[in-house]
């Protein structure tokens, strides 16, 4: 049902974009691309086996792009999706190095589903930090924010060390999805990749530390659930 809604909204978003592209002058070229920053197997310090991904795809012109952003985490042992997020946003430049984006997000993990409206910015901050900052308002009226920062450090021109941080915060409690007000979760990553075919396929190894914060962590502790985990990760960075 939610998927059907997502498709419906997706079509609603695509339609104006396509009409924009078609009415644009013929020499306003349309580009597209697919990028998976993370596409990896995660082996946890307590025997967890997860498959995790984080990526996106876009189509559009310099002025307007439609972007899909997807993130997920599947527990291979249990066969359930612990996290499953899909976002569809329209994106347009606001400055030399930043775009604004707005659209919808649908979470359909095992457990409670959630709809969100979202706005955010994405771009390149001084000193080459790739920044994504997003605000979400859910169907239950709860709002939250996320900040993603990554940096590509060149060990050589093919061997790249990428530290990253993802920080989530909630502005209100949403017990159904086990989130409490305040900083709710942080994920730190360090991945070492090697470009083997152009920039298309770059295998990597790395470590990821994930931890719930504040009341969200207390909630997990009360339930006897894990509130932090460290993973060794093996994956591919993909760009097509």
């Amino acid at each position: 049902m939610k998927i059907i809604n997502l498709i419906a909204i997706g079509c609603g978003v695509i339609a104006p974009l396509l009409s924009f592209s078609l009415t644009a002058k013929a020499d306003n070229p349309v580009f597209y691309g697919l990028q998976m920053e993370q596409f990896e197997y995660r082996a946890g310090d307590e025997g967890e086996k997860l498959f995790s991904w984080n990526g996106g795809a876009f189509i559009g012109t310099d002025e307007l792009k439609l972007r899909w952003q997807g993130e997920g985490e599947r527990d291979i042992n249990a066969g359930i999706n612990e996290k499953l997020e899909n976002r569809l946003v329209l994106q347009t430049p606001v400055s030399d190095f930043f775009d604004v984006k707005g659209g919808v997000r649908l979470d359909t993990p095992k457990g409670t589903d959630r709809w969100y409206g979202t706005v955010g910015i994405t771009g390149l901050a001084p000193q080459w930090f790739e920044v994504d900052a997003d605000l979400f308002v859910s169907e239950t009226g709860d709002s939250s924010a996320r900040l993603d920062i990554a940096y590509e450090g060149l060990i050589t021109n093919h061997l790249i060390l990428t530290p990253s941080v993802e920080l989530n915060a909630a502005f209100s409690d949403d017990p159904e999805i086990e989130v409490s007000k305040g900083l709710s979760n942080i994920e730190l990553g360090l991945r070492l990749s090697y470009d083997i075919i152009d920039r298309s396929i770059s295998p990597y190894i790395g470590i990821v530390y994930e931890r719930k914060l504040g009341n969200t962590a207390s909630l997990a502790k009360d339930e006897g659930a894990d509130y932090e985990a460290t993973f060794a990760v093996f994956g591919l960075r993909l760009m097509f």
């Binding site: 070229p29 580009f31 597209y32 691309g33 990028q35 152009d198 920039r199 760009m239």
Partner: peptide, 10 residues
Amino acid sequence: LRNLKMMPDY
């Protein structure tokens, strides 16, 4: 050009 648009230092 598509690659440059995705990643200018491709």
